[in-house]
Amino acid sequence: MARQTTERGKEFLSSFEGVVLKAYPDPGTGKAPWTIGVGHTAAAGAPVVVKGMVITHATAMDILSRDLVVFESWLNKLVKVEITQAQFDALASLIFNIGPGNFQKSSVLRLLNKGDKLGAAAAFASWNKAAGKVMSGLVRRRAAERTLFETGYYGSAIAANDDETVGVVMASGSPHPEGVRALQADLISLGLLPVGDDDGDFGRETEAAVRAFQLKHALTVDGRAGPATRSAMAAALKKAAKPIAVAMFPLRDQPLDLPAAA
């Protein structure tokens, strides 16, 4: 019988991909293709994502289930040995992130089909780069996937999600100064913070700058820099021919170099 990703597996995957409940635009155009849920665009099938679209977390998981069918099909076709459900869930997270083409030629699959499950588990770690650069966010994700594959432990990555934007969100008091500093650099480039205010402290001035940007761009004005806000910031920076420090992330295939609980 063909396997499917479990509910725990979907929560595990989405804890790294992020769940966005309000549609956000392509960072390069500020328009289509619009993205919602767990990286869903109209290219993946229904529903068609349009500006202003809002969904619940439950709907995001339903859409993810449909989007996962194609990846699950690839796994069921390519994996030739018996694996546990936890191992399937770990592989589903990997193939969703790196794509079927990369997975098909990966040492993870080659070693697994040779019966070397320990070698396959160790090979997860090789998929830790974006644009040729090792990303600590991908290092953490691969380590969690390897742990799930080897032990069946889904870990603390699964959060108690409710109907709000979740994923990598920076907000007042964020304990990750490296990410906040990059966000502040983008806000300075947009003229919303004074030059020199990139101190890594998400305080009242930074929150006010985020709110000002959200108000100007018809976003939810909550002072929280989540994927939708940063996507709009990326589009604004690109239009102004300004460098982008962090605003573009995390979008599909562009992991943010921050812990997922930022």
Rank of each mutant, 00 (worst) to 15 (best):
183 L>F: 05
109 L>H: 13
17 E>S: 00
2 A>R: 15
118 L>A: 14
202 F>V: 10
260 A>G: 07
100 P>T: 07
253 D>L: 06
6 T>A: 10
73 S>W: 10
139 V>N: 07
55 I>P: 02
163 D>A: 08
89 D>V: 12
84 T>D: 11
106 S>H: 14
45 G>T: 13
163 D>W: 11
145 E>Y: 00
197 D>H: 14
195 V>D: 09
110 R>A: 15
83 I>E: 13
9 G>V: 06
124 F>L: 13
132 G>N: 03
224 R>F: 02
188 I>H: 03
64 L>D: 10
129 K>Q: 10
125 A>E: 11
139 V>M: 06
123 A>C: 07
76 N>F: 13
170 M>P: 03
111 L>S: 12
260 A>L: 14
134 V>N: 07
142 R>Y: 06
34 W>D: 00
206 T>G: 11
250 P>H: 00
234 A>G: 03
14 S>M: 10
252 R>C: 01
27 P>F: 02
126 S>K: 13
46 A>Y: 10
31 K>F: 07
184 Q>S: 00
170 M>R: 01
162 D>W: 04
11 E>D: 08
45 G>V: 11
139 V>D: 10
197 D>R: 11
194 P>H: 04
75 L>Y: 15
177 P>K: 14
195 V>Q: 04
94 L>P: 08
70 V>M: 03
75 L>R: 14
180 V>Q: 08
157 A>I: 12
156 S>N: 15
67 D>V: 04
177 P>T: 04
166 V>C: 06
103 F>R: 06
193 L>N: 05
215 L>V: 11
